[in-house]
């Protein structure tokens, strides 16, 4: 157990020491909310500001970037550099590597969400959840969402054949999901078929779960299903966790194709 923790500390240390990565990863959602909050300064109705809606998409995007995008790019690069091969040749139990990644992702996710909420509260009068129940929902939706994203990131890491091609494989997937899942636009304003496609993937459900936290109860009926439908959010995200976990266990590659 101590070894996994140590691995996590090293991963976080490596992250914190690469200044560009820190800047982009941590500040990105906050910058997005600055942009969107400034463009759409109006209300979506009943005195609820646009920011209140956008912040849910930005939190979800942040979680997806930290879990899915970061790992799906970083792991193939480490595989190319031979880091994975080297670790494989030591007695280090294999789970330690993943424990390190999970701790790093959790660290980044928490930090970037706190920064985002701070910026949104200070500059755009974001209303934070006002009941314990909403904070609890916030917690489990985020935890389940980041777990699904992390597992998907690890599973996806086997798809890119080289570290150099990884960003090209991963970025479009992330970007398209953001557009169709209601991150940049109000979800219900999207064409029906697009909503249906988005419903197959975790990001839409993460956004929806977070809307239950940041939007008033009275907005529930505006959701495509007529309510925030938190049980469905939990179910879909859990299924994704399970599917991705199976993919991780069956397809994860420690060495490149070249290494046989």
């Amino acid at each position: 157990m101590g070894l996994g923790l140590r691995q996590g500390v090293l991963e976080i240390r490596q992250f914190l020491r690469s200044r560009e990565q820190v800047m982009f990863t941590l500040a990105f959602p906050a910058i997005l909310i600055l942009v969107f909050g400034s463009i759409f300064s109006g209300e979506i109705g009943n005195g609820v500001k646009f920011t209140q809606y956008f912040v849910t998409g930005m939190i979800a995007t942040g979680l997806m970037t930290a879990g899915f995008q970061a790992l799906a790019i970083q792991i193939p690069q480490e595989r190319d550099r031979g880091v994975l091969k080297r670790l494989l040749g030591t007695p280090m139990p294999r789970w330690v590597y993943f424990a390190g990644k999970v701790l790093m992702v959790a660290f980044i996710a928490v930090l970037e969400t706190v920064i985002l909420l701070t910026v949104a509260t200070l500059l755009f009068d974001l209303d934070l959840p006002d009941t314990g129940a909403k904070w609890l929902t916030f917690l489990w939706v985020s935890a389940l969402g980041i777990t699904a994203c992390t597992l998907c990131g690890v599973a996806f890491s086997s798809l890119a054949r080289t570290g150099r091609s990884a960003p090209a494989v991963v970025t479009p997937v992330a970007l398209i999901l953001q557009f169709i899942s209601g991150v940049f636009f109000v979800f219900t304003s999207l064409p029906g078929w697009m909503q249906n496609v988005a419903s197959l993937f975790p990001l839409k459900w993460m956004c929806q779960g977070l809307r239950a936290v940041f939007l008033p109860e009275s907005f529930g009926p505006r959701e495509p299903g007529g309510s925030y439908d938190l049980p469905m959010v939990a179910l879909v995200l859990s299924v994704w966790c399970l599917v991705a976990l199976v993919l991780c266990l069956t397809t994860f590659r420690w060495t490149t194709k070249r290494d046989g």
């Binding site: 140590r6 550099r81 031979g82 030591t90």
Partner: peptide
């Protein structure tokens, strides 16, 4: 190994100390 996996942002001391924990 022939090809080396690097740990860019870590120091020599940190990497060696960490690997020592595997044994």
């Amino acid at each position: 190994l022939q090809g080396t996996g690097e740990f860019d942002e870590l120091t020599v001391g940190e990497v060696v100390t960490h690997f020592a924990r595997f044994y």
